[in-house]
Simulated assay, not measured.
Amino acid sequence: RGEDGHLAYLLRQAQAAARLSLERALASTGLTHPQFVVLTMLKAYPGLSGADCARMALLTPQTVNVIIGNLERDGAIRRAPHPVHGRMLQWTLTARGLALLAKARRGANALEQRLAAGLGKRDVATIRRWLARIAAEFHPD
């Protein structure tokens, strides 16, 4: 522990602390962290299939299927058949889903501000580049 710890462990420790903080921030919305990620992906990329959403969200297809079922039941997303591949379903946010995501995003933005507290814009940009590089090199999918 501490600044002299192994870099991979420090990264894991920071990720665990950030995830716990995000889960606490999401508690008032009723969303879980994975549901928040799925809503975020569907807002950014409307019309994703469940399989594509799973890949982008770094979740298993089985997990995303459960999440999608729950979000659809709650009226946060809706499905439509793919215009070419009719058996493939595409998912989009409903007005309820957009409102729920906006509420959840406020908590996530507050966490982002805490994470960047005390850092300059240059430092934040350097950290973002470093994290993106790690993700690209160690998890190329």
Rank of each mutant, 00 (worst) to 15 (best):
A95M: 10
N65C: 06
I67Q: 06
D74T: 12
K121P: 15
P81E: 03
H33Y: 12
P34S: 02
V84Y: 03
Q62S: 14
L115M: 08
A51L: 08
N70T: 15
T32P: 05
A110L: 09
K103A: 06
R105L: 03
G86S: 10
L115N: 09
H85G: 06
R122C: 07
G30L: 00
R114A: 10
L111R: 03
E23T: 08
G86F: 12
G47L: 00
L48Q: 10
G120S: 05
N65K: 12
T94P: 03
R105G: 07
A116T: 14
G86D: 08
L89T: 12
A108S: 04
V38K: 01
R106V: 10
K43D: 14
N109K: 14
T92K: 10
H82R: 02
E112L: 14
Y45C: 12
A110R: 13
Y45K: 14
R105M: 06
A104W: 01
L100H: 06
A80E: 11
Q90T: 09
L59Y: 05
G50C: 07
Q62F: 02
A110K: 13
D52G: 14
A25V: 07
T92D: 11
T29V: 01
N65A: 11
A80D: 07
L89K: 15
Q35R: 04
T63W: 01
R105Y: 00
K103C: 00
A117H: 09
L89V: 11
L101A: 08
F36I: 02
A25H: 09
A80W: 09
I67G: 05
A110I: 07
A102K: 10
Q113P: 12
R105T: 13
L101D: 15
G97Q: 01
V37Q: 04
P46Q: 01
K121I: 15
R79Q: 13
R55S: 06
H85M: 09
R87V: 09
P83D: 02
R73P: 06
S28F: 00
A25D: 08
V38D: 06
R114W: 03
N65F: 03
L71A: 09
L58Q: 14
G118S: 00
L100T: 14
L71M: 08
L115G: 11
L98W: 07
H33R: 10
I77L: 12
R122D: 13
A108K: 05
L115C: 06
T92A: 13
Q113F: 08
T63L: 06
V64A: 08
R79P: 11
N65I: 03
Q35W: 01
W91M: 09
Q35L: 00
T60P: 02
R79K: 15
A95G: 12
R73S: 13
V64F: 04
L48N: 08
A108M: 01
L89Y: 12
S28V: 10
V84W: 03
V38Q: 04
G47D: 00
T60Y: 02
G50W: 02
A76F: 11
S49N: 03
A104K: 10
A116D: 13
D74F: 00
L58D: 14
L93F: 01
L39C: 04
A57N: 02
S49K: 03
V38A: 04
